[in-house]
Design a protein around this nucleic acid. Structure first.
Length: 187
DNA sequence: GCAGAGATCAGCT
DNA sequence: GCTGATCTCTGCC
């Protein structure tokens, strides 16, 4: 069976809703003829003026301008001087900015290649964090603004139907910790 | 098994 | 200059 790519309209909705709906979907990454794929198992929503934890909260900058751009595109940012984090731009049409952080994946395809890209052989430790999955899938600034709603080297397709969604407080932030915008599933 | 330091870039209070 | 949407390695607080 062939997986369909999620259409752009999918991302043109409330950021929190999109974050929830992305669980169980499949992230596909193509490099040098290899195909890497994983099921999205953890996401976080970051919005705009109502969300002090969001990069967009203080307005547009060189780094976060993708969050203000077209939905369905990749927002990749560099943090802590060494790690990339991968987001998908998603927001309602009436909102100016918003994105969903992909925090964790369950590896499906190309696991040996992921092991090569990272420096561990522990599969369970391959893509279970935002900085780790970008290493495994070789996502860098080069993928900034990549369109995930069309066939390319990085896109998202339909996947499995998630069983039970657990929501909690977002990780690593101070402000806005009261918002339960972290979502995960157990696969 | 868990707490703490270090690595080191972009954007600020 | 300091802080962060992080991860890995070290030492036993």
């Amino acid at each position: 069976m062939k997986m369909k790519i999620l259409p752009r309209e999918f991302y043109s909705r409330n950021t929190v809703k999109v974050a929830k709906d992305l669980l169980g979907k499949t992230l596909i990454r193509k490099i040098d003829g290899y195909t890497l794929a994983g099921i999205i198992t953890e996401t976080e929503a970051y919005r705009y003026k109502d969300d002090p934890a969001s990069h967009a909260y203080r307005g547009i900058t060189e780094r976060n301008k993708a969050m203000f751009g077209e939905v369905g595109k990749a927002y990749v940012y560099f943090t802590y001087g060494m790690y990339y984090c991968f987001n998908v731009v998603a927001k309602s049409e009436s909102i100016d900015a918003g994105a969903v952080l992909i925090r964790a994946l369950k590896p499906q395809k190309g696991i040996p290649k992921m092991i090569q890209n990272r420096k561990t052989s522990v599969v369970s430790n391959l893509t279970n964090g935002p900085g780790k999955l970008t290493q495994s899938l070789k996502i860098t600034k080069a993928q900034y603004g990549e369109d995930l709603a069309q066939l390319s080297t990085l896109y998202i397709t339909e996947g499995i139907l998630p069983d039970k969604i657990v929501s909690g407080s977002r990780v690593g932030i101070k402000n806005g910790a009261d918002k339960l915008w972290n979502f995960k599933i157990s696969v």
